[in-house]
Design a protein around this nucleic acid. Structure first.
Length: 402
RNA sequence: GCGUCGGUGGCGGAGUGGUCAAUCGCAACAGACUGUAAAUCUGUCGCCCUUCGGGCUACGUAGGUUCAAAUCCUACCCGGCGCA
């Protein structure tokens, strides 16, 4: 059976891993490597689809669990599918709800994120002690029972159910239902969770292939294995052996080891299919991931940081609320081509945040998304021109100079 | 002029003899945020010393009572209200 999505490699890097390509979906093409804009609840927070398109985004990723809870996947289906519902005409993706197994489960009530710090914060360790009874996700072999974070009602996700819902939502690319594990999980637990995720991957795939939606929607299998080399490689081989349309690399990492861990996996994945690194990332992480052969990335950071007043610049991330920007009439980044920097000053954006005017979140989100999307796009160009290493060196030196 | 209520940290506003450098909110200052439980969360917030801790100056002003006062008394200054 032919895949509803096709991937063409344009250029491979000298390290044999990184590559530039073109991913064709039923709703348009994505030039990879590409940063995927996150629109969890069928909206990129604070932005209209026109703004999202205008800042250069080629694809939007929504969330199955969130849309299932609100407004319900059937309504999305009856609205003509995700793209039609949210008025986004380009390519779309949905995450399976696997991340919510983590964020509402083991990470609930803690400050643990999927990317662990190299030097653990003792406060984090204390906060990890959360009664398992209050967590909102419970895992068993067959699936996950969630308690809605908004009204406490109970819901059940299985691999089949996740795919069924993702079929209704109708994104071009969907993900197998997996378990995103905590970076603090033991090897034993990671292994156990990995085996389960593999069984879920097969079930997701079987359910998908048995339905006509598989002719319009591509299914991506997810490699897990935490921070353990043998588990990552085992997972990459097993997931590769299945007939997925592409691959996701999920789960937890250490900031320092992320590149290495991604490399273990991408070396084993078939070159002719796209790889999506789930939930990453920060500028530095993106360089490492691209260098190690990832094609797609999504991250909430640009929009969340934007709403909270942090903005990216070539000289590092800054908080626009800092006193020094109060009367600073320069754009957030001199030379930036985004709508925000073309028309507004730091002082104005800072004023909006201080006055709690919602347009501030919009302007900061536009800038941050533009920054990351164009950063990855620049990486793509650099791969095509064989100048990736210099480009990376130049950026990293300046961005992390402190 | 008489009466009355009140004057607390940048602001609002608690406190009404000791546990008060003074609850709390706002503002301010800084930090965090990686498949969105998030337009959220955390910390600092009189001055000085290196943190623990210690020192100093403070609750309109000046005196007083008391072992001890933002809290009680007296006078004065200022403000609100009422009566002339």
């Amino acid at each position: 059976m032919t895949s509803p999505i096709s991937f063409t490699l344009e250029q491979e890097g000298s390290n044999g891993l990184m590559r530039a390509g073109v991913l064709t979906t039923p709703h348009g093409v994505i030039h990879t490597p590409a940063f995927v804009t996150v629109g969890t609840k069928a909206t990129v927070k604070a932005l209209s689809p026109e703004m999202v398109k205008g800042l250069g985004a080629e694809v939007v990723l929504a969330n199955t669990y969130h849309l299932y809870l609100e407004p319900g996947h059937k309504l999305v289906r009856d609205s003509g599918g995700l793209g039609s519902f949210m008025n986004w005409s380009g390519p779309t993706m949905t995450d399976s709800g696997g991340f919510q197994v983590f964020s509402l489960g083991s990470a609930y009530g803690t400050s643990v994120s999927k990317v662990a710090k190299d030097t653990p914060d003792p406060v984090d360790d204390e906060q990890q002690v959360v009664d398992s009874a209050v967590k909102l996700a419970r895992i068993d072999e067959d699936g996950v029972t969630f308690k809605s974070y908004s009204d406490g009602s109970e819901h059940r996700f299985t691999p089949e159910r996740s795919i069924e819902i993702q079929h209704a939502i109708g994104a071009d690319m969907i993900f197998a239902f997996d378990e995103c594990t905590s970076p603090n999980a033991t090897y034993e637990y990671q292994k156990e969770a990995l085996e389960r995720t593999h069984r879920w991957a097969k079930r997701s795939l079987e359910y998908h292939k048995a339905h006509p939606e598989s002719e319009k929607q591509g299914l991506l299998g997810i490699v897990q294995g935490g921070r353990f080399e043998d588990l990552r490689k085992y997972s990459a081989e097993l997931i590769s052996s299945l007939d997925f349309d592409g691959f996701g690399i999920g789960g937890s990492f250490t900031k320092k080891d992320m590149d290495t861990a991604v490399g273990w996996v991408t070396r084993l994945l078939p070159k002719e299919k796209p790889r999506h690194l789930l939930g990453i990332g920060e500028p530095g992480d993106l360089f490492g991931a691209v260098e190690n052969g990832c094609d797609l990335f999504d991250c909430v950071a640009p929009t969340r940081l934007g709403r909270n007043g942090s903005v990216y610049t070539r000289d590092g991330r800054v908080n626009i609320l800092n006193a020094r920007f109060r009367e600073d009439l320069k754009p957030i980044e001199v030379g930036c081509g985004c709508y925000t920097c073309s028309n507004y000053s730091r002082a104005y954006v800072a004023h909006l945040f201080r006055a709690e005017e919602m347009f501030g979140a919009t302007l900061a989100s536009i800038h941050n998304l533009y920054f990351l999307i164009h950063l990855v796009r620049d990486m793509r160009e650099a791969i095509l021109h064989g100048t990736f290493a210099e480009m990376k060196q130049r950026f990293i030196t300046r961005y992390y100079k402190a």
